[in-house]
Design a protein around this nucleic acid. Structure first.
Lengths: 143, 143
DNA sequence: AGCTATAATTAGAATAATTCCAAATATAAT
DNA sequence: ATTATATTTGGAATTATTCTAATTATAGCT
C-alpha cells in the first residue's frame, strides 16, 4: 500500500503543523484508512496494518490514530458504547449506522443545515463541534 | 425520595408494556433521575441510590437503567468515550456538553428541524433515531 | 555524514466501564 | 399460599483503551 504523493504532502504538513513527527507507522495507517473507507475500529486497523507491517503494535495503532485525529485529517466516530471508529472524510458530514448490516455510511450536510443547528442553541452557548448520528436501516436492509 | 403518583403510574404502565416487572429499585432509580436532572453516570446514580437504599448493588443500577431505557422513559446519552449518562427528558432534544464545566444541557429541537435532518438521508435509508451532540463552551464558561 | 535531544514505538501491565454468572430473593399470576 | 419466572446481588470476567518504561527513530545542528 502506497500513500499518494499529494496525501503524503498533506500528512507531513498536517503533522508538522500540530508539532508531531512523520513516521512510517503514521503514514501506513493513514494510507490504509484512505484506501478502504469503511470506518474501521482500532482493532480492525491493527489487523490490516499488520499485513504490510507485521511488527506494528496495537499501542502504536492507537497512538497513530490519536496523532492523526490531532491533525484533523481523520476523525473519531462513536456509536453508543461501541468501539471508536475512524474516518478520513474531511467534508462536513454525519454518520448513518445500519443496525442490521453494521455498515456506516457518510451523510453529507449542508452549511445551511449546520447553521440552523447552531441557531437553536440557547443564548451564550457556542459549539465547537456538532456530532450527528443516525441509526436505522440502510438501503440494502429494507424488505 | 418519593415518586409522585402520576410518575409511578407512568412507570408501571411503561414497565408492563415492555414486559418487565415493577420493583422498588426501578422505582427508586426513576425517582432520583427525575428529581435531579443533571445527566448522571451509572456510578453517580449508584452513589445517590445508596443514600436511601444502602443495599442496592451497582449491577442492579445498571440493570434498572437498562430496564428504564427499554421502556423509553429515560434515554442514554454518550459523549465520545466517556461513561454513559442518563436523561429522563421525554421531549425531542439534543445535548450540549460544556468541556469546561462538564455540564450537560438539553437543547430543544423542533419537529421542523428534525424533519430537515431526515430529508438529507440518501434514498432508501430510514432512521429510527437521530442523536445530536454539541460540544463547546456554555453560558457560564465564556470570558 | 555523525551527534544529540526529543519524540515515537513497542510489549505488556493497568485501568475503567460495563456485562456476565450463579445463587438468593421478590414479583405476580393462579 | 404456591409456584413459575423475573430481578437482585456480589463478585468475577470482559472489552476497549491508556499507561509505563525500555528501545528505537526522527530531525536539527555542526
Amino acid at each position: 500500500m502506497q500513500l499518494e504523493p499529494q496525501y503524503k504532502e498533506l500528512l507531513n504538513n498536517a503533522l508538522e503543523l500540530s508539532g508531531q513527527r512523520a513516521t512510517k507507522q503514521r503514514e501506513h495507517i493513514y494510507a490504509l484508512l484512505l484506501q478502504k473507507r469503511n470506518h474501521p475500529t482500532a482493532e480492525e486497523v491493527y489487523v490490516r496494518a499488520k499485513e504490510d507491517m507485521p511488527t506494528i503494535s496495537l499501542a502504536t495503532v492507537y497512538n497513530c490514530l490519536e496523532a492523526l485525529a490531532e491533525t484533523k485529517l481523520i476523525r473519531q466516530v462513536n456509536f453508543e458504547r461501541e468501539p471508536t471508529r475512524y474516518c478520513p472524510n474531511l467534508t462536513k458530514h454525519a454518520h448513518f449506522y445500519c443496525r442490521e448490516s453494521g455498515e456506516i455510511v457518510d451523510v453529507d450536510l449542508s452549511d445551511k443545515l449546520l447553521d440552523e443547528l447552531m441557531k437553536v442553541l440557547p443564548a451564550g452557548f457556542t459549539a465547537k463541534h456538532i456530532e450527528i448520528s443516525y441509526d436505522g436501516a440502510c438501503n440494502d436492509c429494507h424488505d
